[in-house]
Design a binder for these strands. Structure first.
Lengths: 327, 327
DNA sequence: ATGAAAGCGCTAACAA
DNA sequence: TTGTTAGCGCTTTCAT
C-alpha cells in the first residue's frame, strides 16, 4: 500500500521477508514448493512494498513476453473506419488470446516509418508471436519474421510468394457465387460489380469469384474497382452508371463500398432494390441501418481471428502452461 | 542476409567485427565517436549475422521501452464499432507518437481480466507511459499508475477524484449549447435529447449542457438515455416518441445514436427534418451517408489525441532525444 | 524446502 | 577513440 516512488526489486522483497531472492521469485511465480508460512511472509512484503516484477528483466531470462502482436498495415483512419473486417479480426483474436492469458498488442503501420518501427519491435522480441491482417501487395515482413523463427500467421493468403508463412483465409469465391446466384435467381440480368483493391487478396479473390460466377450464368462482366472505402464505392457506382446505364444489379465487394454505392444510386434517382439490386459483402452492423437495409454476404471474420491465434499458439515452440502467477 | 536460426548477440557481432562489445553497441546506437572503418566493419557484421538488438536487455539497463500504451477500457466490439471517438483519438495519438518516434501499443480492456492484465503490463514497465480514453465510472488504474510514477494522461476528466491525473477534454457544454441554439433558431419548441451513458464524462457533461441550454431557452427537458451505441439510440428514440409524441426536435449526444434514432423515426413515419429535426454529435464520417445526412456538432477529437501525447511526453522525466539508431 | 551463484544481452561509467 | 568492467532485475540450475 505504501507508495514507494522508487520501485522495489525482488531483492528488497526477499530481504524484507527474510528469505532469499530465489524463494521470493518462487512465491511470486506461484511455485507450490514453498512453505506456507514463507509464502505468506513474501506476499506480505510484496504488498507492503508495492512490488511489481520488472518484465524486461523477466523476459530477458525467460525469453518470453507473454504478449502477441496483431499488425494491421493500415492507417488508424482505415482501421477505425467502419470497415467490419477490423473489429471482427480483433474480436476473434482478443477472445482467444484472453483465454490463453496472452496480452494483445495492436500495431498499425500506415506509413513506411511505422512499418519499420514495427519490424524492429517484433524482431527485437518484444512479442512472442505476430499476426498480420489486411495485408497489401507483397509485404516481406511476415516472411522475414517467420524466417528468423518468430511465430507468424497471416489472415489472407500472402501475396508474397517468397516465404512459407502459415495463413488462414475464407473461401471468397463461394460467398461471391452465392451472392451472384441470388441476384440471378431474382431475375437480374445485367449484374455489375464494384471490386475491392487489386493489391489485396480479398479484392482479387472476390473479383475472380464474380467473374467465374458470371461466366457460369452466361452474363457479361461489368466491373469498377474501389478500395473498400465508402467514398470509393460512391465513385465506382457513378462510373458503373455511366458505363452501363441499363444495369439492374450490382455485387459490391464490401458493405462499406455498398453504402457509398447506395448514396450514388439515391442521388441518381434509382430505386433500390426495384431498379437496381445491391448486394454487399461482410455483414457489417451498419448494413442494417442503411435505407434500404443492405443485403449482404456473411463472412466468419471472427473465426478467422480465433483461428489465427490457435495456429500461432500451436506453432509456438516454447509455450508455457504453468500455473498462473499469483501476485 | 544469412538466416541464422539462433539469434546472434552483440557479443558475436563484436567478435566478428574484431572489436569490443562496447564499440559494437556504440555503432548500433548511432554514436558518432567511432572510426568510420570500424563502423563499417560492425555494420557488415550486423548484416551478415542478421543481428537485431534484444529489446528486453536494452530496456533492462536503459529503463525505457520507447513505447507508449493507449488503453481503451472497452471491448473490441465497441472500439471498432463506428463510433468516431476511437479513430479520432487513435489518429491523433498515432500522428504525434510517430513524430516522437515512439511505438504505440493499443490495449483494449473490455473485461476485468484484461483490465488486470493491462495493469500488470503497465506496472511492469513494458511501456514508458499510459494514456486512457473512453473511461467508465471510477476506474482507479490511472490514479494507481500515476502514483507509482508512471507518466499517465486521461482523455476526459477522470470521475475518480482519488488522484490528480492530468487530462485533456473539450468543452462539451459549448458544443451542446450551439446545437440547441441552432434548433431553437429553427423554430423548434419541443426539443428532446438522447443522452449518453451516465457513467462517462462525455455522457454526463453533454446532458448537463442540454439541460442548461434548454433552461435558458425556457423549454422543458425531455430525456432518454442511451449508451452511445446505434441500437440504444433506436430504442431511446422509440421511448421519446412514446413519452412526448409532439416533440419536434431531438439533440442526440452521439452520431451513432442519432443514426439509430433516424431509423426509428423513419419506421414511425416521421419525416426528418420536416416533422422532427435531428442533430447529432461528433461529426462522424457516416453521418454524411445517412438519409437524410445528419446535422452534427463538430468535435476536435484528433486534437485531443495529439494533446494527450504532448502532455505525456512533456511529463516524461527521462525522455531521450538522441540521434536515431541506424541499424 | 531453501539458498548461492551464474548468467540472460545489453548499456554506460570509467580507464586507457 | 576504444576497451574493461560493473551492473540492470530476474529465473534457474545446482547444492544443501
Amino acid at each position: 500500500m505504501t507508495a514507494a516512488r522508487e520501485r522495489p526489486t525482488l531483492e528488497e522483497v526477499a530481504r524484507r521477508a527474510g528469505v532469499s531472492r530465489a524463494t521470493a521469485s518462487r512465491v511470486v511465480n506461484g511455485s507450490t514448493t514453498v512453505a506456507p508460512s514463507i509464502q505468506d511472509a513474501v506476499r506480505r512484503a510484496v504488498r507492503e512494498l508495492g512490488y511489481v516484477p520488472n518484465l524486461a528483466a523477466r523476459s530477458l531470462v525467460t525469453q518470453r513476453t507473454e504478449s502477441i502482436a496483431l499488425v494491421l498495415p493500415e492507417t488508424a483512419t482505415r482501421v477505425f473506419s467502419d470497415d467490419p473486417l477490423f473489429p471482427g479480426i480483433v474480436r476473434g483474436v482478443s477472445q482467444e488470446l484472453e483465454a490463453a492469458e496472452r496480452q494483445l498488442v495492436l500495431m498499425m503501420a500506415g506509413s513506411a516509418a511505422s512499418h519499420d518501427r514495427i519490424e524492429r519491435y517484433a524482431m527485437g522480441r518484444h512479442v512472442d508471436g505476430v499476426m498480420f491482417a489486411s495485408m497489401h501487395g507483397m509485404d516481406p515482413l511476415p516472411g522475414v519474421l517467420a524466417r528468423i523463427g518468430m511465430p507468424t500467421v497471416c489472415s489472407g493468403r500472402p501475396l508474397a510468394a517468397t516465404a512459407r508463412v502459415p495463413y488462414v483465409d475464407v473461401d471468397h469465391g463461394a460467398g461471391v457465387a452465392s451472392a451472384v446466384r441470388h441476384l440471378v435467381a431474382g431475375g437480374r440480368r445485367r449484374i455489375a460489380t464494384i471490386a475491392g483493391p487489386q493489391d489485396m487478396v480479398a479484392g482479387i479473390d472476390r473479383l475472380a469469384g464474380y467473374r467465374t460466377a458470371l461466366r457460369e450464368s452466361r452474363n457479361r462482366s461489368i466491373v469498377a474497382v474501389g478500395d473498400f472505402t465508402r467514398e470509393s464505392g460512391a465513385v465506382a457506382m457513378r462510373q458503373l452508371l455511366d458505363d452501363a446505364p441499363a444495369l439492374d444489379a450490382v455485387f459490391v465487394a464490401s458493405d462499406l463500398m455498398a453504402d457509398g454505392a447506395l448514396r450514388t444510386l439515391r442521388e441518381a434517382g434509382r430505386r433500390v432494390p426495384h431498379d437496381v439490386a445491391v448486394i454487399g459483402f461482410d455483414d457489417a452492423e451498419f448494413a442494417r441501418y442503411t435505407d434500404p437495409p443492405l443485403t449482404t454476404v456473411r463472412q466468419p471474420i471472427i473465426e478467422i481471428g480465433r483461428e489465427m491465434v490457435r495456429l500461432l499458439l500451436a506453432a509456438d515452440p516454447r509455450a508455457r502452461s504453468s500455473s498462473p502467477p499469483n501476485w
